[in-house]
């Protein structure tokens, strides 16, 4: 046990006793198994989506995928309705999140003193911790009547605009954090060089730091969109989408997103059942959503890696 106490150390002493190496091996196996569960989870997600999606795709009438609207109970599964809804809500969200998130990141990274940072950054983190149901209710009970309907009198109580703003608030912290990380990883040498040739701080920030961090900013943008597309509860509560919805591009009116279509189908039916392929359509939408966000996340990952490689 205590090799130090012995006058001489032989090679055998250093090898460690059998019990310890056995523990070591066992631990390694257990840890590896734990790490593999995440792979198993990915496989399980894909498998659970795949089966029913295949049933849906192989049995659905193709014409019903391009019709007047998303009415799973009538056998109308118009993809463009829910995809457009998702895109519109995400677009509104980005209109809110990009200026606010990016501005916050610029201030935190380039202007804030250490002390200011210490107080301001946790606020963003607390905002990030607010559950989406809370923002959904806030969007319905406050943003819609007090903001959206005040500015646009023709907006309905449930609207994609109000939901989009709610989703936007939700992704501000994400946008801000990733952007700030990107800007902070720009080496100070660049800033110093810029200052040295007489550039003002604003010039340095806009012409040097932001272009240098652009990959990271793009990544932040993509991750934020991905999160906005995947957000469910805000849209479910505030966009007024129920079991079905006609194709609509009016953000001031109610609308249906991929996520809300899934949630309202499950909420409306308890067991998630219905006529013919209604149940399977839930999985089909889930698969669409999964692929959408997967592509976005992979793209964002690539941009993030580009930043890391650059500096």
């Amino acid at each position: 046990m205590l090799p130090v106490a012995q006058p001489r150390i032989s090679l055998a002493d250093l090898r460690g006793d059998r019990r310890r190496t056995r523990t070591e091996k066992l631990v390694r196996i257990l840890l590896f198994a734990a790490a593999l569960t995440s792979v198993a989870i990915s496989a399980a997600i894909i498998l659970s989506l795949l089966g029913q999606t295949w049933t849906f795709v192989s049995q659905v009438e193709l014409s019903s995928l391009w019709s007047d609207g998303w009415f799973p109970r009538r056998g109308q599964y118009d993809i463009k309705t829910i995809v457009t809804g998702s895109i519109l809500v995400s677009a509104v969200a980005m209109v809110v999140a990009v200026p606010l998130g990016l501005g916050a990141a610029v201030y935190l990274s380039e202007y804030a003193s250490q002390r200011a940072r210490k107080w301001l950054k946790p606020t963003l983190e607390i905002l990030a911790g607010i559950p989406s149901v809370v923002l959904g209710f806030f969007a319905l009970a406050f943003i819609s009547p007090q903001v959206v309907q005040r500015i646009f009198s023709e907006a309905t109580a449930f609207s994609m605009a109000a939901a989009g703003i709610g989703v936007g608030i939700l992704v501000i912290p994400l946008m801000a954090t990733i952007s700030e990380d990107a800007m902070r990883s720009v080496p100070d040498a660049l800033r110093e060089a810029s200052t040295g040739v007489g550039a003002r701080k604003i010039t340095t920030t806009v012409k040097v730091v932001i272009p240098a961090a652009v990959s990271g900013l793009v990544a932040a943008f993509i991750v934020a969109i991905s999160r906005a597309i995947g957000e469910t509860m805000v849209v479910f509560i505030a966009a007024g989408a129920t079991g079905g919805s006609l194709f609509s591009t009016d953000v001031l009116g109610p609308g249906q997103t991929m996520t809300a279509a899934m949630a309202s189908q499950a909420a409306g039916t308890d067991q998630v059942r219905g006529e013919a392929l209604t149940f399977q359509s839930l999985f089909f939408v889930g698969m669409l959503l999964f692929l959408f966000t997967l592509v976005l996340n992979l793209a964002a990952d690539r941009f993030v890696r580009r930043v890391r490689q650059a500096y």
Partner: peptide
Amino acid sequence: RPDYQASADDNI
């Protein structure tokens, strides 16, 4: 008709 505002909640 499909083009009406639908809600699962009567109060809404």
